[in-house]
Design a protein around this nucleic acid. Sequence first.
DNA 1: AGAACGATCGACT
DNA 2: GTCGATCGTTCTA
Length: 235
Amino acid sequence: MKLQRDFYNRPVLTVAQDLIGKTLVHVTPVGTLKSIIVETEAYDGTCDKGCHAYPYKNTPRTSVLFGPAGHAYVYLIYGMYCCFNIVTCSAEYPAAVLIRALQPIEGTEIMANYRRQSLPLTSATYKKLCSGPGKLCQAMDITRSDNGLDMCGDTLYIEETGLEHQQLRFSSIQHKKQAADSTNLCCQQLQSPSGLSITASPRINIDYAEEAVDFLWRFTLDDSPYLSVPPGRKK
DNA sequence: AGAACGATCGACT
DNA sequence: GTCGATCGTTCTA
């Protein structure tokens, strides 16, 4: 059920794709929070100018990226929000997957409270609870104190998604047609290691990253209404 | 010691 | 679509 170290100890692009459709679990004092991962981005400090650790830059902030796979990398962004990543690959290889959007499953009223959303949730506010890297950290109560936390432990971890939510597969199984009609030069249709239809597209807000702005290292679950931004067709 | 800059969000035109 | 909030990290000197 719970993903083990060897899941994370693989190439960062593989892990970023394979995390789509998995369930993120945070066991907190006020309740258990569960959400399905629907959007990720890969960052590789060996070859990717968008990565904090490029080129092999080991600082106090990025040191967890140089540690073993399966640990949380949480940092402050724009002075007011957090971003949550999971370290991949072996130790001494700096890389991580940024979690960018989630489909809330369990503990949604607690999440709404953390997000300062009034109850009851409407369909629209529910979809936006975790539709961005900063929002999902608020909703799932992931803070900088979680930086370095072992995701193979018992409080913050990822597990296979239960059968009751496996309609993920059915809703996205026959979706190759979408690739044909729109001339998406900057999107690519893929199948995740666990068989889900996903789209690879450019990463968000890394305009400074030179050639890496064109890497198709963002992965989204096809047709999910819980994404931060739909995979674009601009450029 | 000081300055520049975000892997964002929500309010607003 | 634009813009400001807000502060830790990093670099330069």
